[in-house]
Design a protein around this nucleic acid. Structure first.
Lengths: 384, 384
DNA sequence: GACCACTATCGAATCGTTTCGACTACCGTG
DNA sequence: CACGGTAGTCGAAACGATTCGATAGTGGTC
């Protein structure tokens, strides 16, 4: 029994090939043709479709059946968006590849939040990834509004174009850009809370595992293949000073407020593997092991814990670990991680709302979110 | 030292608020104005920007400086796309929310593959998620081509619109749609390979953990909140017959070819948690434990292994487990999972290439990918 | 010196829709 | 019966670019 009975797509299956060929074959049917067949003017036909304006039921019906007979697909978005000056598209700009960007659940949650707010009534999300120096995609895409997701100052040129087009823009998880509304997080003070928690427990010898401090990436993510920077290595004063990634810097400062002289390493991205590498770098030598480690993301913390476990260390007995983000880690490590929980989806929603508000002429204020401390089972007083 | 020295965004920071207000304030500058200031015709100005056609260097320069003086942002994509009949946008349609869709790494890999191929020269990816009965977003978005990512027959109406618009369309990880090019996977025969591997090891009592068989979701993902279906529960003949999700059905058939009478449970989505629930359902009763379990995804397999571990069972000593997908699981469970590895990113790339090919009038053939068997350390001969 | 080919530029048409103002009936009211 | 109001319809003007065909100018060749 064929299962194609509940739709009538079969009839013109081969049409696709024929009509897709540009400039050849039947031109697509237009509102004018529908109007002609229905015996009304184009303007009336338009009203019949859009629903705005007075149209008699009889006329509307006539237009609709005419459209059906001609296989009219509805008003062409291109014509509509030119006339109306908007396209119903919200852009999401990221500097990384899809795969890299979504390896950290935090980014997925942010995007999901944006989608929740912006995706209603026929709007779509235009994903502009791997946006580098060439701003081509940003120039040639018609977007009503834009959310910059973890973008660095390297896209300043693209932002300039957005400004010239007067496109409402919101930055999420990045530095502040002039003229761009910022949705921010209390990275610095929240990190200070985490650090103070360790201090209160009695820790003095605390090491840091930092997210990338500069380079090719936004806040998180691996270096694009073949590109420089985002190198892993020890956390030196020089690197700290030269840092360009706001998140990493802020979280670092928070810890420094409590442990000014703590040493550490810089990871090449927010990944479990990177955390393991960092963990080994800090823990392999038994003589210079810290009693606690502050990781700048939960994924890094998970890696550190895995490294510690490999070395036979007990967490939190031999080593306390705190993270940042508050993603569900129970699938990665069996521990209940002590961490600073950030409201990821809520931030995405705020960004989405802000863009829509700007679109309607509102003047939304910048929003600053706060992370909340979650005391898990990976921190305890140092042994001895 | 201020860090805003390398861009000149500061000047018009407040412009955004003023000019974003529609209908109010300065209208956006147009190519005509640029042409006027440069003292050339509009057509010449257009040529100066697009680069196609002969323009003297002097003229081009004049146009460009005029544009700069007026803060012209470049040709408006709306006008361009109306005239040219294309927008540079490739749509990716999914029936789930972002968060749900991207919880399984396999979907991220697929999307990444699509992005790799389609995202070159100024193209962008329009993410249409949570596309339900209302096809609004699909009707009102101007897309040059579309990739259906794990869509069910529920979107037949939307596909009809695409066909009427003659929009090149490719289906990935879904059923076949008439008139739509399909990129497929050898789910059935690959599952048979996995099952035969267990049979060869001597297993006779094999249970199945199936992906959702029907309902509100595409191949994977949780039910939309408040919606029916995608229920978890025992795998009955009735449910098996009523299944609508192609992937699950095919993988089931493959196993059935080797173990016709094996029992099993249906999970509510491709998640570790669901795998754990399923695992407990199958393993909690010591008297009716299978010696091996075939899970229809790696995430489900990971959950099953976690459940087994919780019950004190050794994998593969007491229980053999095989999965499907070949995602990097080393961050979730310590085991090297025996599984069927599918070329996820490669499938995405194939879909992307196919859409572009269709766009240029080509006639790409359907592609069928094959999964390869990976013998890990989670399968062994049954004890006794 | 006439003619051709070629370059640089321009005017006008076109893409498909929405929207604004005007125009016709028609209805009810004074 | 004259008149204001309204519902329904229509024509024409945007929207902002690209592209086609035509028109000058320029230099070279026979």
């Amino acid at each position: 029994m064929p299962d194609s009975s509940d739709n009538d797509l079969g009839a013109a299956a081969f049409d696709l090939r024929v009509r897709a060929r540009p400039g050849r074959g039947a031109t697509r049917t237009t509102l004018a043709q529908v109007a002609a067949l229905a015996g009304v003017s184009v303007s009336t036909a338009s009203l019949a479709f859009s629903g705005s304006g007075p149209v008699s039921d009889a006329t509307r019906q006539r237009v609709l059946t005419a459209a059906e007979r001609l296989h009219y697909a509805g008003p062409d978005p291109r014509g509509r968006s030119l006339r109306q000056g908007r396209s119903g598209i919200i852009g999401v700009v990221m500097e990384e590849r899809v795969l890299a960007a979504f390896r950290d659940p935090i980014w997925i949650a942010l995007l999901d939040g944006i989608a929740q707010e912006t995706t209603a009534d026929g709007r779509g999300l235009l994903l502009l990834t791997d946006v580098g120096e060439s701003a081509m995609a940003m120039e040639s895409a018609s977007m009503d509004g834009v959310v910059l997701l973890g973008c660095s100052t390297r896209i300043a040129r693209s932002i300039d174009i957005l400004r010239r087009r007067a496109t409402p823009t919101v930055a999420l998880g990045g530095p502040e850009f002039p003229g761009v509304l910022t949705i921010s997080l209390d990275d610095r003070s929240a990190s200070e809370v985490a650090a103070r928690h360790l201090a209160d427990l009695g820790h003095r010898d605390v090491a840091i595992v930092a997210l990338p401090l500069d380079g090719d990436v936004g806040a998180l993510g691996p270096p694009a293949p073949g590109s420089p920077s985002a190198e892993r290595g020890p956390l030196t004063d020089d690197r700290e000073r030269a840092g360009t990634v706001q998140v990493s810097i802020d979280r670092l400062r928070g810890v420094r407020a409590v442990f000014p002289d703590s040493t550490g390493v810089v990871a090449a991205g927010s990944y479990v593997d990177e955390g393991m590498i960092a963990g080994h770098a800090l823990l392999d030598d038994p003589d210079r092991r810290p009693t606690a480690i502050v990781a700048q993301s939960d994924l890094l913390a998970a890696g550190v814990i895995k490294a510690a476990t490999e070395l036979g260390l007990d967490v939190p007995g031999d080593l306390s670990v705190v993270g940042y983000d508050g993603i569900a880690l129970d699938r990665i490590i069996p521990h209940d991680l002590t961490t600073m929980v950030q409201p990821a989806a809520e931030q995405g929603r705020a960004a989405g709302r802000a863009v829509l508000d700007l679109l309607e002429g509102g003047e939304p204020a910048p929003v600053r979110f706060t992370s909340s401390f979650h005391r898990g089972a990976t921190t305890a007083a140092p042994r001895r």
